[in-house]
Design a protein around this nucleic acid. Structure first.
Ligand SMILES: [Mn+2]
Ligand SMILES: [Mn+2]
Ligand SMILES: [Zn+2]
Ligand SMILES: [Zn+2]
Lengths: 130, 130
DNA sequence: TCAACAGGTTAGAATAATTCTAAACTAGAT
DNA sequence: ATCTAGTTTAGAATTATTCTAACCTGTTGA
């Protein structure tokens, strides 16, 4: 499935900018990136796109489930092309995230969910350093 | 141990402002708060302190281990008086964090740490909703 | 006791990530 | 070809946090 179809599937008009981003991002590989790094990649390919558009597009992509947004480690929002449930290593030397497949982690004990609430997902972050 | 002693223990001069904050914060209870919420508490007590000083102090407190800093869910930095290793529920309706004692969580399986790295802690976040 | 000074506080400016505004543009429908 | 809702964009606005630089204060030791 090409990127135009992928965009149509989720009811997003395949504009020049969205196609550009989708080609960069939705190539089947799992990646973590920021709005700025994506813009640099695009610009260094000789193409151009404004940062506002990148935020608009990435936020749309998140809202339709093409991307996940990771709010961790402060400052900058990281986007994740791996939208299935998974965990992360955090390389504390670089800030880089590395995916952990969910079946790599098992629990022998978990706490009771507070009364009146239900679980909405368990995320494990393993901080690593050199 | 009173707050002046606590500050002296970590080589911080017990200034008026640090004492004020330490009394609010280091009362033995586990809390999560932001710089803004602490300032509001102080001001509503009739005392005054600038936001710059609150950031200065809280950052110092973190660097000497009196507080932990939690960079999660974007935007605002949350400070945590529970400096021992623990996990969190995240109430997605309110953004509130609730402590989970580490012995409430057990692992039956954990992934290999990438080559050349060592683990620097495992953090579990259980997202909950009403 | 108190001068000296290193360290601390502060208002306001600066910074930086992200969102907003509003004008110009375009994909898709008819 | 025309129309319109949706999209893009530059630049302004917003917001959390840090910086600047002037003023203040805790501590020390003469
Ligand atoms: Mn931060
Ligand atoms: Mn965010
Ligand atoms: Zn990931
Ligand atoms: Zn906590």
């Amino acid at each position: 499935m090409n990127v135009v179809e992928k965009l149509r599937n989720v009811n997003l008009r395949p504009t020049k900018q969205r196609i550009l981003l989708a080609k960069q991002i939705l190539d089947g590989k799992n990646k973590h990136f920021t709005a700025e790094t994506i813009q640099k990649e695009v610009l260094s390919n000789g193409q151009s796109i404004s940062l506002a558009t990148i935020y608009n597009c990435l936020n749309k992509f998140v809202s339709v489930g093409l991307l996940k947004q990771i709010d961790q480690q402060g400052e900058v929002t990281i986007f994740d092309t791996n939208v299935s449930h998974h965990h992360h290593f955090l390389n504390q030397n670089t800030g880089e995230l590395i995916d952990i497949d969910p079946d790599e982690i098992g629990f022998s004990k978990l706490p009771d969910i507070p009364n009146g609430f239900e679980s909405d997902g368990v995320e494990v972050l393993i901080k690593i350093k050199e």
